[in-house]
Amino acid sequence: MYQFLVSFTVRPDRRDDFVSLAAKTARDSLANEPGSRRFEVIADDANPDVFYLNEVYADLAAFEAHAGGPYFGAFFTEAGTYAEGPTWLMRGTLVGEAA
């Protein structure tokens, strides 16, 4: 499995918009992209303006299909107007079996 963790810093007045948009992207991706396995939206405990997206795909090709798909593009078109990122914190392929 290919997985990654990215962060975004969001303008304070647009936090709810970011969460709604990321959650919609997660729902659409999981429902319509066969290689999407997990898409979590996580709020930072220390900074209310920081959010993380924790995503898992069947493999790198599945992520690339996601990145070339409509949900990815729509997310960045909107979020890019009020959020900075993504900052890549981790990305790679799972070694062995998940615990």
Rank of each mutant, 00 (worst) to 15 (best):
M1E: 11
M1A: 12
M1T: 15
Q3M: 02
Q3V: 05
Q3F: 13
F4C: 09
F4K: 14
L5N: 06
L5T: 15
V6L: 04
S7G: 14
S7E: 10
S7L: 07
F8S: 00
T9D: 09
T9C: 03
V10H: 14
R11T: 09
R11M: 05
P12A: 01
P12V: 00
P12K: 00
D13N: 13
D13C: 06
R14S: 12
R14T: 10
R15Y: 06
D17W: 09
F18W: 08
S20E: 15
S20K: 05
A22Y: 03
A22G: 06
A22D: 04
A23E: 12
A23R: 13
K24A: 03
K24G: 10
K24V: 00
K24S: 05
T25W: 01
A26W: 10
R27D: 15
R27C: 07
D28H: 15
S29W: 06
S29F: 02
S29R: 04
S29D: 04
L30G: 07
A31F: 09
A31T: 06
E33R: 02
E33G: 02
P34A: 14
P34F: 05
G35T: 00
G35I: 01
G35H: 02
S36T: 15
R37L: 15
R37W: 02
R37Q: 11
R38K: 14
F39P: 04
F39I: 03
F39Y: 14
V41T: 10
V41D: 02
I42V: 10
A43Y: 10
D45E: 04
A46I: 10
A46F: 15
A46M: 12
A46W: 13
N47V: 11
F51P: 05
F51T: 00
Y52K: 03
Y52E: 05
L53E: 13
N54K: 09
E55M: 05
E55L: 01
V56T: 11
V56F: 07
Y57W: 03
A58F: 05
L60F: 13
A61G: 14
A61I: 05
A62K: 00
F63V: 03
E64R: 11
A65Q: 12
H66I: 05
H66Q: 06
A67H: 05
A67P: 06
A67L: 00
G69T: 10
G69M: 01
P70E: 11
P70Y: 00
Y71G: 01
F72C: 08
F72K: 07
G73D: 13
G73M: 05
A74R: 01
A74H: 01
F76D: 04
E78I: 00
E78W: 00
T81R: 11
T81Q: 14
E84T: 13
E84M: 01
E84L: 01
G85H: 02
G85D: 02
T87Y: 05
W88L: 05
L89P: 10
R91A: 09
G92T: 09
G96S: 07
G96L: 09
E97V: 06
A99W: 15
